[in-house]
Every structure is written in structure tokens, then in C-alpha cells.
Nucleic acid binder design. Sequence first.
DNA 1: CCAATAGTTCAATAAACGTTGAACATAGGG
DNA 2: CCCTATGTTCAACGTTTATTGAACTATTGG
Lengths: 123, 123
Amino acid sequence: MSRTPLHPTREQIELPMVLDCLSDPIRLAIVYQLAQQERVSSELCCGDFNGLAGKSNLAYHFAKLRECGVMQTRVAGTNRFMRLRREDLDARFPGLLDAVIKSAARDAERLQLLPEGEVVAAD
Amino acid sequence: MSRTPLHPTREQIELPMVLDCLSDPIRLAIVYQLAQQERVSSELCCGDFNGLAGKSNLAYHFAKLRECGVMQTRVAGTNRFMRLRREDLDARFPGLLDAVIKSAARDAERLQLLPEGEVVAAD
DNA sequence: CCAATAGTTCAATAAACGTTGAACATAGGG
DNA sequence: CCCTATGTTCAACGTTTATTGAACTATTGG
């Protein structure tokens, strides 16, 4: 349980897999929160998403996001820190991630993107 | 079988549904071919996609693309003509469709986007 | 060393999905 | 009016998916 898990190389990232990842509401919320976090260039760990679903369900979605190349996991002690693979995604699919995040942000309430009554500063 | 089928309004189009639509290789290929056709501002009918899958399978995917608001179907005689709902999609999710189409175009071979050995002129 | 914390893995379940072929509906041409 | 071409609908199927709780692993702090 200790080694950092496997991630696909940039070239192995496939468009349909990424779109499928982003099409799930829970995974979209995870990605959205990771994107918010990019602004302060820091990472989030599993526990930060506990509002979205149960632990084992989250682990399932994390694995999918990892396997599809959407995010990266770094192991540190008992924590896993994750971040978007922004560079790789932008290189493979220019403009895609931004379009998805922006579209999601517009529909944030409808999509229940934030766990509790969290508020995000406007751009 | 004669009336033009139901389509969601622009506002009813949901991001996760659209992403899910585009995440299926056959549907992505359909959308890709429709996007190519936009250049000559004309439509395609069901038969034009026969290279991608069997008829009933295609009908299934067409229905999904319609229900999710990705494309529109117009009935004319024994034919159904379809086109992308470009304006609606661009209004709801700016830049998304273009990013997907462009990314798909880059990986056209890998994704087997064109039925037979078809060739598309470069941009 | 023990207990608590942080996550993963596994097995089980129900629902959704993609694919198939057969039957059906409709319109148009001889 | 029939025959054909074009698509849709339906039932069946096997597969994949998301979700759950329980068991497990690993690390840290006392």
C-alpha cells in the first residue's frame, strides 16, 4: 500500500477515457476542486473530498481518474496528495480541460460541485 | 415513425450527459463526421454512418446523441438528416466542442474515426 | 507497542450500457 | 398497389459501472 501507484504516460492518455472520467458527476466534482486548488498551486488529499461520497467509493473514483491520466497521486506518509495532470492534458487535448472546468463552474449549483455550502471567490 | 423526435431545449443540455455522449468511440466518430460536414453546411443521414456499426446499433447511438442535445434530427421522407447543435453547445459550453473535435482529429487514426480508408483534407 | 488515522482492496449487488437480430413502420418508385 | 429502401423499436444478452460495508494495510503519535 505504500508505493506511489501507476500512472499512464502522456502519450497513453486517450480522449474517450478522459471524457468518460469527466462525465461522472462525482469525478467531475473532484476534478473541479482540484482545478480550484491549482490557483494556489497546492494539492489536495483524499480526505478533502469526504463530502462527495463514502471513502471506498472515492477510492474507486480516484483510481479511475489516475488510470485515465487525469490526475496524479503522490504518497506521503499516510496521506495521498493529488493534483491534476494539467500539463499532460493540455498537451494532448488543448483547451479541453479549461472548457470543461469553465462550463462546470457556470453550472456549479446545478451540478452540486461543492460538497457543503462552500463558496468560491469569483474570477 | 414520422414525426421529428424530441430534443432537449438549450438550457436542458447538461455537461455530464454531453461528455458521456462524446466518450463513446462510435458516438465520437459520428460527431466527428458531423463536424466535418459543417464545413459545407450540410447534413448527413443515417446511412452515411453505416461503416461505423450496424443499423440498430447506430439508431441507439443516434437516440442518445439526440436526447443529450448533441445533435438534431430532421425527418424528410424516408430519411433522417442530422446536424450538430453547434450554436446551443457553444452557448452552453464555450470552446468544448471545438476542443473535443480538434483533439479527436489529432488522434483520428488511433480512434478509427473514419469508417473506410477515407481521407480528410488538412486544415 | 498500541491505538488511531488515512486509504485501499475485496466481494456483493443493482442498475445502466452497448450490441445483436428480428419485427415493425413509413415513404417513394415502378 | 406492391416492393424496396430507410430507419426505428423491441427483447434478449452479456458486460461494465457505481455503490456499499467489511476487512485489510500502512504510518504516525503517545
